[in-house]
């Protein structure tokens, strides 16, 4: 029965055979992957490889959220889109690519911004959340929504030749606010539009992010909870850093949280979370 989420049909067994035969995944792991749902917030440089590889792995239901439309200047890094998608919403373009690539996976396109109004409703509908966005305020919003909904958050970022990956609020580990209780000054924040990025850097980092999602979904391996991967493409260097544990005083995941619902992240960060950061930014 191809509609059952608890079993694998013949098409699935044949399609995922190369994963199934690995002791690290096996039939049980593949069933768990099929039963999992993942919300990918951002269909850009990180969201592109995450979407492709999660679809390839057979994640049962994939939500892809982005408000922007595809631009030609995105394509150097956003490899899930095509030239013919320029002008189309990124979520629609990515959804189409996923369907053409793996029709066994259920895709849900969300052509919307991720806001305090829809965050909790969206996050509650998925098992694992992927932060593939590009600005600070949305990163706090996603973090708080995940902590309040008790969902693991697989987070990554890339700029120029550098990348970072970690897993928040998973296995008792820290959340984004445990590491960064206060937002950075707005003038220190740079995004890919202003700072530039080599396209394959979010590619590397996004693939690593997808691997973390698959391990959590399949219940295999060690996750990057309380670990941070720093990637420097120029050297090239990969450093795995040990992070602090969950902070009992954390405003949102602490023992007596002061943040018990979503707040105004725009004023918290002193910047709009759907605007591009200011052009005089340098870091």
């Amino acid at each position: 029965d191809s509609s059952s989420v608890d079993t694998l049909n013949n098409a699935e067994i044949s399609r995922y055979g190369r994963q199934l035969i690995m002791p690290e995944i096996g039939m049980q792991g593949q069933k768990k992957i099929k039963k999992s749902s993942v919300l990918i917030i951002g269909a850009g440089g990180l969201g592109s490889p995450v979407s492709l590889y999660l679809a390839g792995a057979g994640i049962g239901r994939i939500g892809i959220l982005d408000f922007d439309t595809v631009e030609a200047s995105n394509l150097h890094r956003q490899v899930i889109h095509k030239e013919s998608s320029v002008g189309i919403p990124k979520a629609i373009s990515a959804g189409r690519a996923i369907r053409e690539f793996n029709s066994l996976v259920k895709v849900e396109e969300h052509v919307t911004a991720f806001t305090t109004d829809n965050a909790l409703g969206l996050v509650s509908r998925y098992d694992i959340i992927v932060d593939a966005t590009d600005n600070v305020a949305t990163r706090y919003l996603i973090n708080d929504a995940c902590v309040l909904s008790n969902k693991p958050l697989v987070s990554a970022a890339a700029l120029r030749m550098d990348g970072q990956v970690t897993v928040y609020h998973h296995n008792g580990g820290p959340c984004y606010r445990c590491l960064y209780p206060s937002p950075p000054p707005a003038e220190t924040v740079t995004d890919c539009s202003n700072g530039g990025v080599l396209g394959v850097v979010p590619g590397i980092v996004g693939c690593i992010q997808a691997l973390e999602v698959i391990k959590i979904a399949a219940g295999t391996g060690e996750s990057m909870s309380q670990k941070l991967l720093l990637f420097d493409g120029m050297s090239p260097r990969y450093t795995m850093v040990k992070l602090r544990p969950r902070n009992k005083e954390c405003a949102v995941c602490g023992d007596s949280p002061s943040v018990t619902g979503l707040i105004d992240y725009k004023s918290f960060c002193g910047s709009s979370y759907d605007d591009k950061p200011c052009t005089r930014s340098i870091l």
Binding site: L179, P183, P185, L228, T239, V241, K242, L243, R244
Partner: peptide, 16 residues
């Protein structure tokens, strides 16, 4: 250090 900077001592978060 200002918010948004992580300090690492021999590959460990300085909070540890």
């Amino acid at each position: 250090v200002r918010p948004g900077i992580l300090v690492l001592i021999n590959d460990c978060d300085w909070e540890l």
